[in-house]
């Protein structure tokens, strides 16, 4: 993890699933800076939005959606899931590690799960902040 500075996590979430105030509290004490992008439905999380979050400096991007079968718009969260899977593969392809992007299903209105989620994502992205990616030797060279 980056020494001194905070790890930046951008959270895209459906307004039906998550309250930002609670999540800020949940992240208190973590060495993390959260940024929120509210969406009227998680299906609106376009691939380019996820990539641009990384371009804007996010070390990790989290997409929070309703449980499967509970989307107010029927299949919005399934579409979000597919899109996240595709962007994860694209991130792997360009050497950025797809684990930096994750989608979680949360029960609507219950933000108590936020803290373990943030911790899980931070554990997943390991020790390399995005800003230091270019310091790594190119693939294939030790």
């Amino acid at each position: 993890m980056r020494n001194g500075s905070k790890v930046k996590v951008t959270v895209f979430h459906c307004i039906n699933v998550f309250s930002e105030g609670d999540s800020r509290l949940a992240a208190k004490g973590e060495n993390v800076e959260l940024k929120f992008v509210r969406l009227p439905c998680s299906s609106l999380v376009k691939d380019v939005f996820l990539l641009r979050a990384f371009e804007a400096g996010a070390d990790a991007v989290v997409v929070l959606v309703c449980p499967e079968g509970a989307c107010r718009y029927v299949e919005g969260n399934l579409r979000a899931k597919k899109r996240v899977q595709w962007v994860r593969s694209l991130l792997d392809e360009i050497g950025m590690d797809g684990n930096r992007l994750a989608l979680f299903n949360l029960p609507p209105g219950d933000s108590s799960d936020a803290k373990p989620i943030i911790q899980k994502v931070l554990a997943q992205i390991g020790t390399t902040p995005q800003a230091e990616l270019s310091d790594r030797p190119p693939a294939g060279q030790a």
Binding site: V48, L51, E55, L90, I94, M96, L133, D135
Partner: peptide, 14 residues
């Protein structure tokens, strides 16, 4: 998407 992915890919390569 391609523009964003290329910018990120080149950043990874420094």
């Amino acid at each position: 998407v391609m523009a964003s992915a290329l910018r990120l890919a080149f950043k990874v390569d420094g």
